[in-house]
Design a binder for these strands. Structure first.
Length: 271
DNA sequence: ACCCAGGATGGTG
DNA sequence: CACCATCATGGG
């Protein structure tokens, strides 16, 4: 058991932020989180957290996963005080962080996410894990490409993937047998622009999904995925353009604050 | 019944 | 190049 005091971290907010689709709620302030072959149960009371793991696992796996080496306090302070909208947005989502998730799982998540809603994405990811997951001790880890490569389009449609089923069929087969490791290796040597281009070369992955993969799966903090929510925000609050340069180095995190706020607003959680 | 959802693809002008 | 119909399917 590891106990830590951590600021700028709300499990509740992150779980509802639409960046990860595989957390399981265990209680009011308690979540089960799976990352690769690791699983942890985390509970939160204010800024007090307890993780069901060893110190070593915390340092090596969960500290990076929760992006705890990034100073969100400084980031929050860097927000332009004259920008009342963004100031409110960051204040509202003060517990948001951008997780450092697994590349393959993020790729599948956001491949499925296109023209889809978060509830359905979450359900499809759970079904994929339930049907094709690898047994990993007491829990199921998300399947690797090999675990999905045997499935056909109809198999994925049954899980609610709809027309995206054919994308996943092809992706899983292409990245089986070392293809995934090869792709990850190649992406390491790429700059941001190049990485985005490489990902867009995959069937079913366009610019927006590629940007999500770069941000959430490759941990490249300057990607700023523009989806329907962000488009709406831009037209409503930044008709003259968003001040990207000011937030260079943290554009992805700023994007996540904006997205989260807009997401809650449309569900009526923001007054 | 209608519109929307963390869009991408393939075809057309 | 820029548009645009189409793609499944559940949520609100």
């Amino acid at each position: 058991m590891v106990q830590r005091s951590i600021s700028h971290l709300s499990l509740e907010q992150i779980a509802a932020s639409g960046q990860c689709f595989t957390w399981a709620r265990l209680g009011p302030c308690r979540w089960a989180v799976v990352h690769g072959q690791n699983r942890v149960e985390v509970s939160q009371e204010g800024e007090q957290f307890s993780f069901s793991c060893t110190e070593r696992q915390f340092e090596e796996v969960w500290k990076p996963y929760f992006d705890l080496d990034t100073d969100y306090g400084t980031l929050v302070q860097s927000v332009d005080p004259a920008d009342e909208y963004l100031t409110g947005v960051v204040e509202y989502g003060r517990g948001i962080r951008v997780l450092r998730q697994d590349f393959w799982e993020v790729t599948v998540s956001f491949l499925i996410s296109q023209n889809n809603n978060i509830t359905r994405i979450t359900r499809s990811m759970a079904e994929l894990r339930r049907k094709y997951g690898r047994s990993c001790g007491e829990f199921l880890a998300f399947p690797r490409p090999e675990g999905l490569a045997g499935a056909g389009e109809e198999d994925f449609r049954e899980l609610g993937l709809g027309y995206r089923a054919k994308y996943l069929v092809r992706l899983a087969r292409e990245l089986s047998g070392g293809g995934l490791e090869q792709l990850e290796g190649r992406l390491k040597d790429c700059g941001d622009e190049e990485a985005e281009k490489v990902l867009m070369g995959l069937y079913g992955i366009g610019k927006k999904v590629a940007d999500c993969i770069c941000l959430f799966g490759l941990h490249r903090a300057d990607f700023f995925p523009v989806d329907t929510h962000i488009r709406q925000i831009f037209s409503q609050h930044y008709p003259g353009g968003f001040p990207s340069e000011r937030y260079r180095g943290n554009l992805g995190r700023i994007q996540q604050y904006l997205f989260y706020y807009d997401l809650k607003k449309t569900t009526g959680a923001v007054t």
